[in-house]
Design a protein around this nucleic acid. Structure first.
Lengths: 134, 134
DNA sequence: GGTTTTAGTTCGTATTACCAATTATAATAG
DNA sequence: CTATTATAATTGGTAATACGAACTAAAACC
């Protein structure tokens, strides 16, 4: 089950990952979004999450998420919605504008990432299929 | 040549990359090093570079590198060496302490990354071989 | 010698991130 | 049913990260 990777493969995989993140960062920069902001918007593509859940997904402190959402909200990319039955809880949702930007950015990304994969020494494992970007 | 990736593969690759970077970030945090600091030290593993070259490798401004190297130098991980024949040029080199930390961190990383690769839907392309982590 | 390039640094500002403390709401105990 | 405890998120303080513009110092060019 799955030909496991040796030390060189690991190095190559880390290297390729850095290259990809560099591209994500670059595309993000074109939209004036940080890597973290891009990650957050990517996660919110198909979900509505509470602040604490976002923190969990991103591996960051709740206080960091507050600022992150503040800035995204100020730009109209996301909105905060107060939970009906629990007044403490806030849920974050992409606006339609946010959705549009994420869609465009994702398309840009695909273009940039393809050549990296082709030169990575890594290949998709035939067709397993089970997408989602988070 | 090389079975090229479809849209789902791209998504999966981006997702896996984020997962890996999250692990690199986590291991870095254990050594109190940022993702960028880890990248820098990784690059310097087998090289001595000028400030401007480091900026190039990392895709950052020279002014950012100044601060980054400042902090790493303050901790004894790297040293600045003035070029003999060109008084403007500074070269950055890992100290032996820096080398030791990078070696340890790299080993830690391998442990954490292996399972991600196994579940990534991606596989090393047989044996091409040509390592290096930068 | 004087101007122009090149290499790095410094300064001001915004973002990112952490931790500790705080506010507001909910749940639980007595 | 108030009083305590727990949970959700925010605020404030600090450090690191990153940028661009302005600056210093050392070459290179003419």
């Amino acid at each position: 089950m799955a030909p496991s990777a040796d030390a060189e493969d690991l190095d190559r995989f880390v290297e390729t990952s850095f290259a990809i993140i560099a591209q994500v960062t670059r595309v993000g920069a074109e939209y004036d979004l940080s890597l973290t902001a891009v990650r957050m918007l990517g996660i919110l593509r198909d979900r509505v999450l509470k602040m604490a859940e976002l923190a969990e997904y991103l591996g960051l402190e709740r206080s960091t998420i507050s600022g992150l959402v503040d800035r995204a909200e100020r730009r109209g990319l996301v909105v905060r919605e107060t939970h009906a039955s629990d007044g403490r809880s806030t849920r974050v949702r992409l606006t339609s504008d946010g959705q549009a930007q994420v869609a465009r950015a994702t398309a840009d990304l695909a273009t940039r990432i393809t050549p990296i994969i082709e030169n990575s020494g890594l290949a998709p494992k035939s067709s397993g299929h089970s997408s989602a970007i988070d």
